[in-house]
Design a protein around this nucleic acid. Structure first.
Lengths: 232, 232
DNA sequence: CGTGTTATTGAAGTGTATCAAATTGCGTGG
DNA sequence: CCACGCAATTTGATACACTTCAATAACACG
C-alpha cells in the first residue's frame, strides 16, 4: 500500500522498532525510550534523485532522520554556482543547524540518490530535550565537529591548490560513501572548483597511477600516495 | 596586589558578582546561581598583545570567558600562512568547540590587544550542565550560528573576489569591534587574502570615496556603497 | 635616535576559471 | 530492445585576478 504513492509522506511507514541499526542516529541511539516517544509523531518520506527536501531561506519545521540514501546540503550563489556544504547518509540528521540556531535554512537539501527518511516536528524534538537532557550534549558534540570541518575547509580553500583539494575529496567521498558514484560536477562542488579542473586533475592522477577511471567509476589504486598529494 | 605580577593567573581577582554586564556570557547570564557556582573554581588571567592563550593541537582544559580585550583564533598552515577563524570580544567564550567536540584545539588563541579573562576548569563546566540543562541548549544555539558563519565564509571565498571579501571584512570588523585598529595583515588574514591585495583594494576604495585612510585608521564614509560592493 | 615592523608600490608569474566545441555515455520512451 | 536526446565528459585555447617576490618609504616602539 505504501508503494502506490511515490514521493509522498506517509505516517508510520516504518516503525521505530524496525528501524535498522544503520539508521541509529545520535538522538534515537542515546537512551531507550526515545524512539517510542517519537513513534507517534514521525512521518516517513521518500525522495528521488535531485528532489528537494527543503529549500534555503525557509524556516525549519523539525528534523529529518536519514534512513536510506544520501542527501547533500548545497548553497547556490547569485551567479548560479552550487557548492556542497555537507553530505548526510543513513543515521545522519538534517535540519538541526537551523533548528537549534533558530534561523532559516541556509542551504538546500537535495537527494543524491533514492532517499528514505522520517520527519519529526520541532515540538516533539524539544520534548525529547526536556525528558533526556543528555541529547543536547550529543548534539552539541556533533555540531562542534561540524564546525571544525567547516573551518578547516575554509583554510584548505586558500592554502591548498585544486589538485590537493580534489585528492582530499576523492578520499573523503570514498571513506564515507563508498558505494556511490559521483559526477565530475559533484566532485567539483564538494572540492570547491570546476568540473573541468576536476577532469584534468583526475587525468593527471590516473597518469601517475593513483587512480583508475573506468568510465564514470573511479577506483583509488594508491591511497597513501593520494593522501600525500592531499597533504593529509 | 593583583597588579604586581603580570600575565599571571590569579585566583578570584574579580568576583563574579563584580563582573561587568559586558562580560555576561551565554553561560553566566542564563540563570541565577551559575556565577556563584563558578566563583570558587574560576581563575583570572591577563595577556598582552600577541601572547598565546592556548595552542592548536593541545587538549582543552576548560573554558575561557573574555572580560576585556579581543582574542583571535587563528590557524597557521604548513607554509606559514595564518588565517583568522574567529574573533572573540568581551562576553565571548573561548575553547568551547574543542571542549564539546571532545577534540584537541584546532586553532591557536592569540590576544589582539590587552586581554583579561577568567578560566573555568572542564569539570566545573560539566557540573553546571547537570544542574542547568538549559545551558546546553544555549551553547548549541551559539555553535550552530558559528557553523553557519563558517560555511558561508567558505562559499564566499569562492564566489566573491578579493575586493568583495575585503569590503565585507571592513564592515564586519567595524560592526563588531568598533574601537579597534587593524593592520593590513590582520585584515588580510580575516578576509582570506594577502596584505598587498588589501592595500591596493583599500586605495581603490578610498579613490571611490567609500573609505578614508588616515594612516592606520580606516573610516567608513559610505557604508551602503561598501555593502553593495561586498554584495551584502 | 636607531631598529625592526608595517605600509606602499612595482613588476612578473601562474594557477585556475572561463568559454567553446566535439564526443561519449546514460536514461527514457517508443 | 533499440534509438533518440540530453547531460556529462573531454580537450583546447584564452584571459585574468591574484599571489609572489622585491625594494623603498613611513612609522612605531623601546
Amino acid at each position: 500500500m505504501s508503494s502506490k504513492k511515490k514521493n509522498d509522506c506517509e505516517p508510520n511507514a516504518i516503525s521505530c522498532a524496525m528501524c535498522g541499526a544503520q539508521s541509529q542516529n545520535i538522538i534515537c541511539a542515546t537512551s531507550p525510550g526515545i524512539p517510542e516517544a517519537l513513534e507517534k509523531s514521525k512521518i516517513n518520506c521518500r525522495y528521488k534523485r535531485d528532489q528537494v527536501i527543503f529549500y534555503a531561506d525557509n524556516d525549519p519545521l523539525g528534523l529529518f532522520f536519514v534512513q536510506r540514501g544520501l542527501v547533500k546540503l548545497e548553497r547556490v550563489s547569485e551567479d548560479g554556482a552550487a557548492h556542497t556544504l555537507r553530505i548526510v547518509g543513513p543515521g545522519g540528521i538534517l535540519g538541526y543547524r537551523s533548528l537549534f540556531a533558530d534561523e532559516a535554512y541556509h542551504a538546500t537539501a537535495i537527494a543524491v540518490d533514492e532517499v528514505e527518511l522520517c520527519f519529526v516536528p520541532k515540538a516533539d524534538i524539544l520534548n525529547v530535550f526536556k525528558s533526556h537532557p543528555d541529547v543536547a550534549l550529543r548534539l552539541l558534540n556533533h555540531v562542534a565537529k561540524d564546525l571544525r570541518l567547516a573551518e578547516e575547509r575554509w583554510v584548505d580553500q586558500m592554502d591548498k591548490g585544486a589538485p590537493e583539494r580534489i585528492a582530499e575529496a576523492l578520499i573523503f567521498l570514498q571513506d564515507h560513501f563508498h558505494s556511490q558514484t559521483w559526477t565530475r560536477r559533484e566532485i567539483a562542488e564538494w572540492a570547491g572548483t570546476t568540473p573541468e579542473t576536476v577532469m584534468r586533475t583526475l587525468a593527471q592522477f590516473e597518469k601517475e597511477g593513483l587512480i583508475d577511471q573506468s568510465g564514470r567509476q573511479i577506483q583509488i589504486l594508491n591511497k597513501d600516495s593520494l593522501k600525500a598529494k592531499a597533504s593529509l
